[in-house]
Computed example of a mutant assay.
Amino acid sequence: MKTKVRNSCLLFLTACIWGSSFVAQSVGMDYIGPYTFNCLRFLIGSLVLLPVIFFSRHRKKDQKDRSKDRTLQKKEMLCGGIVCGVILCIASTLQQIGIIYTTAGKAGFLTAMYIVLVPVLGLFLKRKAGLQLWISVGLALIGLYLLCMKGAFSLNGGDVLLILCAVGFSVHIMVVDYFSPKMDGMILSCIQFLVAGLISSIGMLLSEQFDWHMVLLAAKPILYSGVLSCGIGYTLQVIAQKGLNPTVASLLMSLESVVSVITGFLVLHEVLSGRELLGCVFMFAAVILAQIPVKRLVLAD
């Protein structure tokens, strides 16, 4: 139980980091293309983790891992990192391109559709969510709609890309759930960032013109996204998902939408409407319900 509480807190911290970095992603796109932005931020995320991994491994160099063959372990890490990196690259690229063609609120709502898709994918993998979690997902969906959507709901080309992005992030959550218990979380993150950065560099070279002047203008958003969103945020996700139901993890991470609104209120002095506040209430209620043990609910009845 202590481990689950700790991991839940880490995922909430992840949501806080992602929620505050959404602005950085949008600002960065004013200067450079989506492939360039993703390439640089993922490579920075990988570099940030290298010294952490080095000192962590150096401290444990005298401890022998007898649980499995080291060669097999390295192959699993490489395989896990490549799979996670490819999926992360696809999802992030779809998100960066989709942001260009739609509003920030709709982008946040459509991206967070993984809260519905994760339990659906879980059904195919024989991981049933249960009535309690489905109710939590429903509450979160209502909360996200109230929080992000304004006016009539309609779809355009950018919105379709964001829906596909949500599918990608859903698959990423499930893949991380599979690989994270088997290996060191920081190494898995480092490899996935390197893979995602290298794939993005191919798109950058083929479809965009690299301009150092524009990169320097976008330096702050790139560094913010690279160090915080990637280096810290996604690494916390990999570490904290161990032992948590993927649906619960997705609900916690979807709080990034709430954090982005609160950040706008605190930093940009944006006014929160009653609709947005009600959306926040629904979101937090969904997360709290998902965290309550089923036995406790039965006893309460």
Rank of each mutant, 00 (worst) to 15 (best):
S207W: 14
W134C: 00
L78N: 10
D177S: 10
T263R: 02
G231A: 06
V116H: 00
G157D: 08
E76Q: 13
V120H: 02
M174Q: 05
V160I: 12
T263Q: 02
D30S: 14
G157N: 10
M1D: 11
S21I: 02
L268E: 11
I262L: 14
L94M: 13
C16H: 07
I173A: 03
A196T: 03
L236W: 02
G279Y: 04
K74H: 13
V137H: 01
G85P: 08
L236P: 02
L139M: 12
C148H: 01
S154W: 06
A249N: 05
P51M: 07
F37N: 06
F109T: 02
R127V: 08
S20G: 13
G28Y: 07
H172M: 05
L110Y: 01
F282D: 00
V160G: 00
F153R: 01
V281W: 01
L123C: 12
S136Q: 02
Q73W: 12
R59K: 14
S254I: 00
C165P: 08
V118C: 07
I222D: 03
S250C: 06
F37H: 05
Y145W: 09
F42D: 11
V83T: 11
L121T: 00
L236A: 09
G130P: 03
L88T: 04
D211R: 12
E208S: 07
A140H: 03
F54W: 14
P51C: 05
L146S: 06
L252D: 05
L217R: 13
V287I: 07
A218E: 04
L278A: 11
S189M: 08
L289F: 10
A285S: 15
I32M: 10
D177N: 11
D159C: 09
T102W: 03
I17N: 11
M186D: 14
V23M: 15
C16F: 14
T263I: 07
V86C: 10
K182M: 12
I292Q: 04
S26K: 15
I142E: 00
Q291R: 12
L244T: 04
F12C: 11
F153E: 09
V120L: 14
L49Y: 10
L47P: 02
A166W: 00
S92H: 03
L162Y: 03
F42T: 12
S273G: 15
G157K: 11
I262N: 06
G143W: 00
C190E: 13
I173H: 01
G80V: 01
F54H: 12
I100D: 14
V298C: 12
P119E: 01
I262F: 13
I100M: 15
L164E: 11
G81M: 06
M113Y: 01
L205R: 09
L162A: 05
G130C: 02
V215Y: 01
V227G: 09
L50R: 05
W134F: 10
F179A: 05
I187N: 13
V267L: 15
H58G: 09
A152T: 14
Y101V: 08
G185C: 04
C16M: 15
T111W: 09
G33L: 06
E270G: 08
L43P: 05
K68A: 15
E208T: 00
F124Y: 04
A112D: 10
V137T: 10
F210A: 07
F265A: 15
F179C: 04
Q132C: 04
I44S: 04
V195P: 05
M183W: 08
A112S: 15
G185L: 06
I53E: 10
P221V: 02
D159W: 06
P119A: 01
L272D: 06
